[in-house]
Amino acid sequence: MRIHVRLAEPFWRAVGQRDLDLEIENNAAVSDLLALLQDRFPALVNEMAQAQPHFFIAEQEANPETSLQDGARVHIVWPVAGG
């Protein structure tokens, strides 16, 4: 199935682009998507070591076990909050 991924700061810098379209096996979960991304873009491993990513699908926060659906749009952000 096909998944659209949008990467926020600082993750997209390690990939070189904000948006990606990826093919992933049916019934994959968010954790599988993360493994695929880190495999394809090894620099992400280092980025995510300190900046733990959070995942949003269809406006709601997802966890690593959340199943992905074909056509899902996954937004990966690093949660920070200051001013």
Binding site: A51, V77, V80
Partner: peptide
């Protein structure tokens, strides 16, 4: 520290996308 590195690159506008996504 990751936050220091990222603030040095893009400043506090970093925070907008996170708040907006939530």
């Amino acid at each position: 520290s990751k936050i220091v590195q990222v603030l040095g690159r893009v400043g506090t506008p970093l925070l907008y996308e996170v708040s907006n996504r939530m």
